[in-house]
Design a protein around this nucleic acid. Sequence first.
DNA 1: GCAAAAGTGTTTTCATTACACCCATGA
DNA 2: TCATGGGTGTAATGAAAACACTTTTGC
Lengths: 257, 257
Amino acid sequence: MVDTNQPELHRASAPIRVGVEVVVFTIRDESLHVLLAPADTAWHLPSDLVRPDEPLDVAARRALTDVAGASEVWLEQLYTFGDVARDPHARTISVAHYALVSADVVSDHADPRAQWWPVATLPQLMLDHRRIIDYALTRLRNKLAYTTVGFQLLPQRFTLSELQRVYEIILDRELDKRNFRRKVEMLGIVKPTREQRASITGRPAQLYRFVATEAPEVIGAPYPLTVAQSPVQIARISPVLRRRGRVVPVSPSEGNR
Amino acid sequence: MVDTNQPELHRASAPIRVGVEVVVFTIRDESLHVLLAPADTAWHLPSDLVRPDEPLDVAARRALTDVAGASEVWLEQLYTFGDVARDPHARTISVAHYALVSADVVSDHADPRAQWWPVATLPQLMLDHRRIIDYALTRLRNKLAYTTVGFQLLPQRFTLSELQRVYEIILDRELDKRNFRRKVEMLGIVKPTREQRASITGRPAQLYRFVATEAPEVIGAPYPLTVAQSPVQIARISPVLRRRGRVVPVSPSEGNR
DNA sequence: GCAAAAGTGTTTTCATTACACCCATGA
DNA sequence: TCATGGGTGTAATGAAAACACTTTTGC
């Protein structure tokens, strides 16, 4: 809150618990997976309560590390879920995050019971975690089209075919090889390395690395996106209009573009 | 949080305060304004603490109503600011929202000391409220280009020139009248009414109303944005690439597109 | 030599842009 | 009649989409 100068506006500090949840995405076996940990009757996202002396992202990174092992991964705040009844035990608001990891980063989990689940066939989930995953997936699809987040799902060096597969898997749609390569080339966001990768069969592929682009700030950091936007549209998203009334209940904001 | 089945993962409930803040935008005098309330030495956003028995959006709407009077307005969650030091008095995380209101809706404030400030010339602000406004503005600019939020800043009936002015003011750029009208026409998101508005001088203008479009869900609601996206691009945003490293600190996620 | 994946250009289509004049009204 | 804002169409540009064959390697 804010108005420490206007104590009359403030009510007694409320016993609301603050937690973080992390939807950890990776690509394995040609499909998008989410990391889940088992509980008694259902699975759940990596999560924890926020400590009084730590920022939200640190809590999220800790939750992630406890389950996945890795912590040096791309992480972004997603949305804050605060329904009164979302956790029947105690009023708990959850600052949900999502993370993207390369399959080579987290092969061995810190929590051995944790498992990767394909987003297409998720198990029974606790509380509102299904909804959180759905929203994270929506956000990921959106951001994939106008940012370079997709690279976070690949190792440092990758082939253009691998990059294209990332896009195809997440967007769930085939892309034209030549158009894709021309676009990536034109954007100047990859650079060939001196290495090639021998494929199991067929011609060896050139290995590329991701290369940072012009603008001063990092995707995922909002405030510095002062004026100019809309970078890196690799795949056009189908133009469908959305309906919309005049007064709208607040709910997970489509998120941020 | 989640794992009520794994109490060992949980730490004692933390004394963290949960607040909401609302960036209320409107257009007046040909520029975008934000509603602020005065405190001793600085101005601040409408805000309040979240009560244990209310959802976040209800708290936000209450904070809004207390200051602005109106409550039947468009409201969306923006981002959750949770830096440890953002409020020196007590650890307080703030679930920031933004609201769009038509100038005709809030002429008389509930709090008579509240004032509209042009976003271009804001006064001294409390805590991190400047940053919250900056981010809300970024989000608004982004969403304006691919959603129909802009209509929330207009009364029920409006002229196409008024609509165009909304876009020009927020995007801070002139738009071509014919191109703008063709686009709006093509999108089918406005419908002429039987009324006209006599302008102070010159030809009377046709009044239009906003009309909902195809897709099943409401903008601002994320999870139902299942697959298809990218509607209503009224103004193209300049194509600038953003730089991006591999590991990114979490910060106000550009938000959601 | 053949199976398998890598790599490479051109044409069509469509949306965005740029651009200038007539119309209806009140004073 | 004139000042003011409302209203209208067409051509040029540029990005996205569609489309098929050659190359390199291992076996």
